[in-house]
Each structure stands twice: as structure tokens, then as C-alpha cells.
Design a protein around this nucleic acid. Structure first.
Lengths: 163, 163
DNA sequence: TATTGTTATACTCTATAACTATA
DNA sequence: TATAGTTATAGAGTATAACAATA
């Protein structure tokens, strides 16, 4: 179903290589390009990991917990830009699958602290190398130098300090 | 583009990484960083559209039609990575709001060609400049040179030819 | 037979408000 | 009163399959 016909482009609009569709001035838009790039990379990156062990969002949560043991659930939700109400279900699901432990500390019994179980740790250790291979392999068009520059700029855009 | 007013990071509502959470090795992942960067920039860029005129996806469709008048509906769906079944509802909604015209050409009466109405054109012309201002302003942390490099790398990653 | 588009449906993500229990 | 988390629900966005009309 990729029957996209080549359209004549009157003006000096830049054509998409595959389809012949132009996006005019917006091909100079960082936001627009970021969206296309993100979709493109994610498609490549998770193509091999589609076997259903963990979803992208769940993997990110496991990672955040692994890197920040005992992190409070709400604080993690804020950082990942996930609503508290939605985080509840996500964490509960991970708990039910034996990947995450929820702990209510006595000093503040409103809160919930999160840690990985041994199984969660194993799962993360299994998939992390695959993710990194896929991550680099999803950008075959960039030289090592360009890749490094790209990462540095993305960090800057995301408001993170240089490596 | 020139020495325009650059918003301070805090005012721009961009995460400053002072949240205390770490993402370890994944702060070197292009896919992960792309997702964060895209969310950040999009939030900023489409703040103008939050007033209920059109949604982000609808704006993109209007743009694609404007740049490719008479584009076939399915071809556009393929490029924007939207399923045909979902594109139907989207286009119909835009048609009902008087922004898009659907035309069944006699030479192939299975297909649907899309064009903007005058109202659709007006709406696009109203919001496009705002989008571009927001686009550049959403990246206050990049110098003009870095911005140009960033765009070039994003184009490369997305499989598009250099400008 | 293949292509174009539609309908129906379901599943995930996300968004909002009301609620609890603790502080 | 304010904070941390939960529940319920509704709305997007996205996915698949069955279908009709046309080529």
C-alpha cells in the first residue's frame, strides 16, 4: 500500500525522496524534523525488540528506577512527563509482573518508593545492550563524528549538561 | 535569526535537568534524547494552536495539502504515516469545518484528491509565521551555527537531502 | 485481481476531576 | 491546607480486518 505517485512540484520545494511530497518551508523547521527523525529512529530502534517483552515506556520506567533506586513514584512521573494517575497503572502492572517493588516508607506513609526486583534488574541487563546496538544502528547515515555532534546537540536541546 | 531576543531556559519552560533523576547510560541514546527533545520542542512550537482552532496533526495535514495541491488522500496518509482508515475521519472532519475540499477525479473514481479551501489557506497563513517564530524560539540554547548543524543532522537522520 | 477508500472495532496513551490518607 | 497517590472516565491516537467501489 505504498502506492504514492510522484507529484510534479512546481516551485523549488524540496521533495521527500520516497514519495515526492513536499513540506515546503517546514522542512527547515526543527520541530517538524524532530518529529520525523524521532519516528524514523524509533521505528528502526524497536523493530527488532517488538517481541513484546517490554514496551518502550515500561523500559524507560525500569531504567529510571534502576538509575534512581528508591525514587518516589510521583517524582519519577514528573520527570518522565507522565500523569500521576497514569503512572499508578503502569507501576502496578510492572509490580504484578514481578519487575518492580513498591515500598511505603514509615517516615511519610503517603509516598511510594520504587525499586527493581532481581527479575527487573535481569530484564534490564538483558535488553540494555540490545537497545544500545539498535540505537547506534538506527543511525547508519551518520559518521561517528556526526553521531557525537548529534548527541551533544540533542542533550543541549533537552536541557541536559554536556557529557 | 539575528541577535533576536533569546528566551532564558526557565522562561521557555524547558527542563533544566536539575530534577535529581539520572538516566545513566541512556543519556547517550539518540532515540531517548530524540524523544525528550521532540516533546520539548513540540510543546513549545504548538502552544499557538492550543486555542482549539486546529490540532497538531490537522495542521500538518493542511500543510501537506497546501504544499501538494490535489494530493491523493492515501498517498498523503502514507507519507505522514497515518493509516488510511484513520485518515478518512481526519479529512472528513477538516472538510466539515470548511478547511479542505475533497474531489473525486473522473479518470479514477476510486481516489480522492485534496485541496485547501480559501478558509483553510487563510488559517494556514495565519498560523505558519507563528509556528516558525516558536520553532526558532523553542531552541534558545542553540547558537545560529548550532541550529543550522542541528537541522542538517535531523534532515540526514530523516533521510532527506541537504538543503 | 489489485487498488482506493470506508466502516467498525479495539487497544494504547493521555488528560481531567473527584476522592483517600497522610502530613 | 497542602501533598502523594488512587480511581474513574473520557478523549485522542493508532492498529487490524472486513467491506464496497473502481481499475
Amino acid at each position: 500500500m505504498t502506492g504514492a505517485e510522484i507529484l510534479p512540484v512546481e516551485e523549488a520545494g524540496i521533495e521527500d525522496g520516497k514519495t515526492g511530497l513536499s513540506f515546503g518551508k517546514f522542512e527547515r523547521s526543527a520541530g517538524f524534523l524532530l518529529r520525523i527523525a524521532q519516528l524514523t529512529v524509533f521505528e528502526r530502534m524497536f523493530a527488532e525488540l517488538k517481541d513484546g517483552h517490554v514496551k518502550i515506556g515500561e523500559f524507560t520506567i525500569l531504567l529510571a528506577i534502576a538509575e534512581n533506586p528508591g525514587v518516589r513514584q510521583g517524582a519519577m512521573a514528573d520527570v518522565l512527563k507522565i500523569k500521576w494517575s497514569n503512572m499508578t497503572k503502569l507501576v502496578r502492572s510492572l509490580e504484578e509482573r514481578g519487575l518492580v517493588e513498591r515500598f511505603v516508607p514509615p517516615h511519610d506513609r503517603r509516598s511510594v518508593e520504587l525499586r527493581l526486583t532481581e527479575e527487573g534488574r535481569k530484564l534490564l541487563e538483558t535488553f540494555t545492550p540490545l537497545m544500545f546496538e539498535a540505537d547506534r544502528r538506527s543511525l547508519p547515515m551518520l559518521s561517528d563524528e556526526e553521531h557525537a555532534t548529534f548527541l551533544a546537540l540533542l542533550r543541549k536541546v533537552s536541557g541536559w549538561p554536556p557529557l
